[in-house]
Every structure is written in structure tokens, then in C-alpha cells.
Design a protein around this nucleic acid. Structure first.
Lengths: 328, 328
DNA sequence: AGCTGGAGATAAACCGGTTTAGCTAGGTTC
DNA sequence: GAACCTAGCTAAACCGGTTTATCTCCAGCT
């Protein structure tokens, strides 16, 4: 048995294709009795509209897109984000990994030209990111995820990293820490820049070392800091993997945590909870964040004017890796 | 400037739509000179065929699908898998998360009927999984990922879990362990059943406790085992999170690792490497596994007859969490 | 010279929808 | 009773490709 098309419904209910289309989409132009008849025939046949055909005639594509330019960044973050997005989306998510930003932009152009997606999520925003301008030029509905601040006429869902950073620093200073350092993520990412700025504002004398989210670079950065002239008494890491690597380096150098060194991780995870000592971490519900982004995109697709939505600020979960400074 | 269509090329090169189609697809029916002219016009205009339109007229959809029925299972595994798949795929991946298997099956039917995908990956195979029969019935090209054994006429990419389990048990028995237990993943999953069987064959007296990959259930299972009448001297966990939770429970109960209890995790991860003590783990290249699955699906799409491909067997990486049994 | 065959191209149908122009019947209005 | 609406519907065009039936040449053969 073939899948029923709009033509089959038209035949069986004795009306034209056009009338069926109007009836099924709840648009005026057919009488209530006809509409009812068409709907019941459609239901009886188990009719499902073809989103492919719809997309071709200019209507919805019934899919939204997400492009990841490698490197992916923090693994667990994206997976939870995508899970959260999906949970809220009634349509499919077209996912593609590309090599660089140029390919990503090219892909948006193609997808949009082909009506393959109705909208896209923009992640991993860079400093001076070209993508915002592109989607605006195309008129491609989009939501910027995690890029604090306003981006042209594009909707944005973000968390207040600056406030979160401030809460971390307050936690540490209240414990007597004065020499606080930061091991940052990729400098090209916008949120790294924002966190850098917030950190500098809160700790004018603080040292920032750039890394790339990997354990090896996290370990190297930690070594650099602890072997320096004025080693910090507390380090804030931009993700969990680097923070855990930092714990390892400290142990290796005979620096006890938290007595001699306090450690804070950005983004909580099983890793933070299960390691010894458990890490104080900035926790957020990434899945809920994705869901919020999905709702934002749906709103834009429904015609709402793009607005910026602030997600809940990551909250500091104090665990055993932070304690009073011994050198205050 | 609008995106050029096949019609624009036809106009500018002075031939018909049909001839352009033949020329662009390298099919016979046009002369070499015409073909060349059409190709150069297409290149000059920056022509990109619309996969939406192609899909409608029955050709390739230029996308493959992956449906995840919640619960997702081991997070990191899927993310790396998808990354590996994407790296090898020249097309987009349609990803959708659904609530249960029935929805998943319904989605395959729709996608296929609409020519929305050219093929699908089947993951998380269940014992007596209905999906294999469905894709066979539909004639929807598919690749089963991680379901050991042969599945009807559907291609399969799998790793030899039985052999891997044997290597784990051999490692432990060579260290003098006789009372070995297993904390298993979801019993409904096929690979859980396969590992169970392999474990039973290798350790006839071994106890198996079912869990669900979460740290809480992993901890509970460990507690149950260690507080039992004949506590094991070694435990094999079905994922990293449960193994790490097991370490925590052991510490809590005053059972030292590895002196009194050896621990092995299935699937290596930063978590295994960074915890104290570092966990002996079954390591595999999940990303490469995904790439292999992608190649398998591409082969099926290209018309190859579906075959079973064996991935490299997970290899045991011995670390500090396993040691000689103190009770041998 | 007439017939056949094949290469090269075109026009048109088709995929499954949406959308627009146009038609018909019935009811108002003056 | 002619003119005018409007609701309700149909026919047809359209989206951007693929595919098939058909048509035109021209070369080759007898």
C-alpha cells in the first residue's frame, strides 16, 4: 500500500486538490461540512503531509538546522544542549559538522535557498562573528545560543556569565583568597572574552592563561601558574576537564587542595562530583538552556519579533575543592 | 540576486531543462560540447542543485537519519559516535529524539515515505527489536550500530563485546580474582544481553546486578554487592559513570581499591583517566566506530549488498584500579 | 532513392504539495 | 430584473528538479 497523497484524499472525498489543501490547513475557502469530510477521509487513510513537497512550494521545511564548526568545544555541553533542544522541538534537527566558519556560512546559504530548514541555531559565537550578518542578510530565522549581549536583529538566548564570574570571585575572596588566576578557554570565542572581562573587572591583578579545554593544555597552564613567581592560591577553570587536570598537577607538585590551592570549575558534571576532592563548580541546566533556545526559535518562526532571553545564571555549587586561603 | 535554478542555466546556455539535467548528472543524451557549455554556465552562476526538489522527484534526499529513543544512554558515547559519523558523511544528518520505539518506527515510515532521508542508522538495539523488520519491509537502507550478530538483510557494524568481556575476565583471573561481579546496563538492550552471556560463560559463578548507567544506580548496585554474603573481589561496570560511583562507595565502606577490590569500566573516558585511582577500562575509538558506520551506510546507498562489519575489539587499558586479589 | 538506426535534443508529464485566477450559484440591493 | 457580492469550489500554474515519449537530423546500408 502506497502512502496516501493529497490527490487520493481529493478523489475519495470528491473535491479538488486545492480544496483539500485548504481544508487540511484550516484556511478559509471551504465550507465546514466539506472540511469535516476531508478531515475524516484524511484520518481514515492515515494521511501525513510530505514536508519535502511543502518545502518545495515555499512553505515550511519542518526542520531547523544546527551547524558545528570543529573543534566542537566542550562535548557534554553540546550533547545536553541538543538533547534539550530536541525535547522542545516538534520538528527534526538537521545537524552537520563542518571544518570552518566559511563552510558553515556556505551551508546556511544552501539550506536556506533550498528551503531545507526553517531556521537555525548559532552556537559558539566568535568575537566579530560573521554569521549574524549572514543570517540577517538572508532573512533566515535564527537564535544565537550563549552569545551574551545583543546581536543585530537576531534573537539570542544567553546566561549572565559576568554575574556568574563575579559570584565565583566573591566566593573565593570571602575565603581569603587574594591571588586568583583563571585558565581560560579558546580566546576566539565570545564567551571567553566576556568571562575574561568579568574576571579582570573583579580581580584586577589576576592572571589569565589561555587554553583549549583539553586536559593536556589545562595541566600545562596549571603548571605554568604554580611554578611562577607568585603562584595563585585559587584557580578558576573554564571547564571541568581542565579543572580536574589541574587537581592532578597540584598533587604532582605537592600542592594540597584545598589547603594550599582552591579550584573552581565552570560547568558541573559527573566528573566534578566524582573526583577527589569533589570540585566546586558553576552549575547550570544545559538541557533546559537548549529547551529555552528551541522555544525562542519557535517563537521567531511563529512571527514573534526577535528578543533576547536571559537564562538562569549558573549557580555556584561549593564542594571540597575550595577552602580558606592559607596565605591570606 | 536569486539562487540560480536549472531553468536559468537552460536559458543562458540555450538548451532545455531536461538537457541541463542530463548534462549536470553526467548521463548520456547530450553531446560533449553541450555538456561542457552547460557545466561552465552552471559554474559561472554558482549553481547548487536543490536537494529538496530532487527528493520530491524520487532521487536522493541527500540526508540520512538517526533517531534516538530516550533514555539516551551513555552521553559521551553518542556524541562521539555522531561526531565520527558526520566526519565521514558528505550529507546532512537528520537527528530526532523521540519518546519510545513506536514513535521511532513511525518516524522511519514518514521519513522514508517523504524521501526525507536516504537511509538510517539504528542504534541501541533491543532484544527482539522491531525496527529491523520495519526497515526491511520499507526497503529503507539501514545500518545497525553496535548490535552484534546478524540482523536479517540489514548491514551491521559491531564490536566483539564477547571477546572484550573475555579479555577483562582473563585480566582479573590472572590477578588471582575468583569472585567477580558485573554491574550491567539496561537489560532491554541487546548488547547488555550479549555481555551478560559472555560474562556468564567466563565466570559461571559470577553475580550480575542490573543498573541503568546512572551514578546513583551504580552506587546502589555496588553497595548491594559489597554488603552481600560473599562480596566480590572485582567488579566490572558497564560504563564509566557507574564505575566511578563504585569507587566512591568502596571508599565510603572502607574497602580499598585495588587492594581489596578491583574495578574495571566499560568505555574509557577522561573520567576514568582523571579519577583517583585511575580506572582500568575497555577503551575503543568511538569516533572511528561512527566513521565506520557512516562508510557502511554509504556503501549500502551506493548499492552494495549489506554486510556485517566488525570494528576493532575494545582493548583493555590496565590502570591502578585493578590489582592482585588479597583473598586468593 | 529509400529505409533504418542512433545520436542529440526538446517538450511534457510527474513528484506532492500551495496558491492564484476564474467560475458558478445563490442572495442582496436598488 | 439587472447589477453586484460573496461563499465555495475547481482548474491550472508553480516550486525545481527527473524522466519519458517524441521529434529531427544525418549517416550508413542496400
Amino acid at each position: 500500500m502506497k502512502r496516501p497523497t493529497i490527490k487520493d484524499i481529493a478523489l475519495r472525498s470528491g473535491v479538488s486538490k486545492g480544496a483539500v489543501s485548504l481544508a487540511l490547513n484550516g484556511r478559509p475557502g471551504v465550507s465546514d461540512s466539506t472540511r469535516e469530510r476531508v478531515l475524516s477521509v484524511a484520518a481514515a487513510l492515515g494521511y501525513r503531509p510530505s514536508s519535502t513537497a511543502r518545502a518545495l512550494s515555499g512553505a515550511r521545511a519542518d526542520a531547523v538546522g544546527l551547524v558545528l564548526a570543529r573543534p566542537l568545544g566542550a562535548e557534554a555541553f553540546f550533547f545536553r544542549l541538543i538533547g534539550g533542544i530536541q525535547a522542545e522541538l516538534p520538528m527534526a534537527l538537521l545537524l552537520q559538522v563542518v571544518g570552518d566558519l566559511d563552510e558553515e556560512v556556505e551551508l546556511y546559504r544552501r539550506w536556506w535557498a533550498e528551503h531545507r530548514v526553517d531556521g537555525v541555531f548559532l552556537v559558539d559565537l566568535r568575537v566579530d562573528d560573521p554569521r549574524v550578518a549572514v543570517v540577517e542578510e538572508l532573512g533566515l530565522p535564527a537564535v544565537v545560543i550563549g552569545g551574551a549581549g545583543h546581536h543585530g536583529n537576531v534573537a539570542s538566548v544567553w546566561a549572565d556569565d559576568a554575574k556568574a564570574m563575579t559570584s565565583v570571585v566573591e566566593h573565593l575572596t570571602s575565603l581569603g583568597h587574594r591571588r586568583i588566576a583563571r585558565v581560560a578557554g579558546l580566546p576566539s570565542l565570545l564567551h571567553t572574552a566576556r568571562r575574561d572581562a568579568a574576571f579582570r573587572a573583579a580581580v584586577p591583578s589576576g592572571v589569565i592563561v589561555s587554553a583549549d579545554y583539553t586536559d593536556s593544555r589545562g595541566a600545562a597552564a596549571t603548571r605554568e601558574l604554580l611554578l611562577g613567581a607568585e603562584p595563585p592560591t585559587a584557580i578558576v577553570y573554564d571547564n571541568d576537564v581542565m579543572a580536574v587536570a589541574g587537581v592532578g598537577v597540584a598533587a604532582e607538585l605537592g600542592v594540597t587542595v584545598p589547603a594550599e590551592l582552591s579550584i573552581v570549575a565552570w560547568d558541573d558534571s559527573p566528573l566534578c562530583r566524582l573526583i577527589h576532592p569533589p570540585l566546586t563548580a558553576l552549575s547550570r541546566d544545559t538541557s533546559a538552556f537548549g529547551a529555552r533556545a528551541a522555544r525562542a526559535l519557535l517563537a521567531v518562526l511563529a512571527g514573534a519579533s526577535p528578543i533576547d532571553t536571559e537564562d538562569t545564571t549558573p549557580v555556584l555549587v561549593a564542594r571540597a575543592s575550595t577552602g580558606h586561603s592559607s596565605r591570606s
